[in-house]
Design a protein around this nucleic acid. Sequence first.
DNA 1: GCATTAACACGTA
DNA 2: TACGTGTTAATGC
Length: 248
Amino acid sequence: MPMSGSMASPTGSVDGKTIRDRVRPASRAELEDIPWLRTLTPAERRRAEAALVVGEAEPGDLVCRIGRSPTYWFGVVQGLLKMSNDNSDGTSMTYSGLPPGGWFGEGTALKREPYRYNIQALRRSVVAGLPVDDFHWLLDHSIGFNRFVMNQLNERLAQFIAAREADRLNDPDARVARNLAALFNPVLFPGVGELLRITQQELAYLIGLSRQRVNEALQTLQARGAIRVEYGGLRVLDLQALRSGAAA
DNA sequence: GCATTAACACGTA
DNA sequence: TACGTGTTAATGC
């Protein structure tokens, strides 16, 4: 039985730069793209906006590293990140892609425990961070923020179940379709838009198939009108078809 | 039979 | 030039 989790990718030279350096306050335009700010009262929002920072991540940069203490609750403003861990045999396993609009790390921030995964930039990205102390302050003071976080956790749980289901499908085309549907989840990743910039190689690592087989599946999905394959990315034409696995 | 790795030509940023 | 895509051939379960 194929399990996508069994697929490992070569780790490559981990140029272990962290983006801790060179963070700056969030610009007005960047604040507009942060979905949970709209759930706050004016006073709460002022505090959150003052605390938010953003940083640029180059391809390969680590946004957070396993074992480090949580410093921020993170969000993707632009670009694409991946969540993965490294195996003892020098390979790594990719668990999830993180497109724009996605916020992550609340589990670690809640418990103030070390990160359990690496978060790495796949392409040039802009990452926002809310310091953990401010994250906790919002949890203690803001009803709207609590609702957002609860909704976020609920949606992620649904995604987790869907991912397990997708892993058990043995039709590679359907697995590719379901994984794409997850990346285009408008609740978890409201900033992804209709064009997702990701290479077929990274998609292959994420899904747990070879690049060649992913390419074949993408051609099939395109022929069915669910997506359009573009250079360095994919455009979604029919999200419902992807969710249903785009079965023949 | 079907997916994987390896290798290649080709087009694009 | 470096990278991503699309394709083929050989190999393995």
